[in-house]
């Protein structure tokens, strides 16, 4: 188990290094980082000052080493549009994204488990087909169109819920439903598949033969075993959600990192774009490392895959 954790830690560090490398080249993809990293309206003297401070007048290799060193300390340059360090600017939008991410995840896990368990309890029945059709539709409808339709129906026509901005819990409902639906569909399908597999095992037959109620067999015997792969999925999902959904946050004017980064893309504020990619990728790596730690606790069979 210790070996497993060391291997995982090492591969996480290698991944982090590769991510920093991608972020470095992101500003150099056109071959002219000056155009992307220096404000348009800078005077020639200012451009020169920028080049020196960012090291853009040096060789690519030197720039790379400089960038690596700075990113370890969390220095990803200054935002062009906002007068503050890029990473700091992005971090201020993190709380809104975290709130939305957890709301969506709870919705996806609870809804997905419920749908999956009900479907697996009577495979092939009407309830099963209904739940799985629902999951398939949830997976097929594009997130942004679903968001627009929710806005149209519940915001504009019925006027039940606010459609933009962050405020009370009622502001959270539409974006969380929009973002959570696709994931709910994934959880529903995974749960059903896992439950069907577990329900056909010998220990379930034993449990039933001991006269345990079907509810108890399902929830206490089958579900914990079926839930193990779901933990990985939840980690991947949370990591993805914390990256901030560019689309959902934009549609609902939710002040999170996704929307902020999109504005940075439109403004060509590349240091902020780089800082966002850096931050959310690192969060993703960290969460998945933690999930692996958790794994070794809940499933002692875990070894290096």
């Amino acid at each position: 188990m210790t070996r497993f954790l060391i291997v995982r830690l090492l591969s996480t560090v290698v991944s982090a290094w590769l991510i920093v490398t991608v972020v470095f080249f992101l500003a150099r993809i056109t071959g002219d980082p000056v155009a992307l990293l220096v404000p348009d309206n800078a005077t020639p003297a200012e451009v020169q000052a920028f080049k020196e401070r960012l090291g853009l007048d040096r060789s690519m290799a030197e720039q790379y080493v400089l960038f690596l060193g700075r990113s370890v300390t969390g220095d990803l340059g200054q935002s062009i549009r906002h007068v503050q360090p890029a990473l700091q600017a992005v971090a201020t939008y993190m709380p809104a994204t975290i709130q939305l991410a957890f709301a969506s995840l709870v919705l996806a896990v609870v809804g997905g488990l419920a749908l999956g368990i009900v479907a697996a309890s009577r495979p092939g029945s009407f309830v099963d087909s209904f739940a799985m059709t629902l999951a398939l539709i949830g997976q097929s409808v594009p997130v942004y169109w679903q968001g627009l339709m929710l806005i149209m129906i519940f915001g504009l026509q019925l006027q039940w819920l606010p459609i933009s901005g962050r405020g009370g819990w009622e502001h959270l409902i539409l974006p969380a439903v929009t973002l959570g639906t696709t994931q709910m569909a994934v959880f529903a399908r995974l749960t059903r598949a896992g439950m069907l597999e577990q329900l056909s095992q010998d220990f379930i037959r034993t449990a039933r033969s001991r006269g345990l109620s079907e509810l108890r067999v399902t929830l206490r015997h089958a579900l914990p075993n079926a839930a193990i792969p779901l933990v990985t999925q939840a980690g991947l999902t949370l990591g993805g959600l914390l990256a901030g959904s560019v689309i959902t946050e934009t549609i609902f004017a939710w002040p999170g990192v996704g929307r902020f980064a999109l504005q940075a893309v439109y403004n060509r504020d590349f240091p902020v774009v780089q800082a966002t990619v850096f931050l959310v990728s690192m969060v993703f790596l960290a969460i998945n490392f933690l999930v692996d730690l958790l794994y070794t606790v809940i499933d002692p069979r875990t070894t290096v895959a």
Binding site: L26, I29, T30, A243, V246, T276, V277, F284
Partner: peptide, 16 residues
């Protein structure tokens, strides 16, 4: 898998 696809794609598209 760790990197935000849409954001990365947008950054590349706006650059080139």
């Amino acid at each position: 898998l760790a990197m935000p696809f849409i954001l990365l794609a947008l950054a590349i598209l706006v650059a080139i």
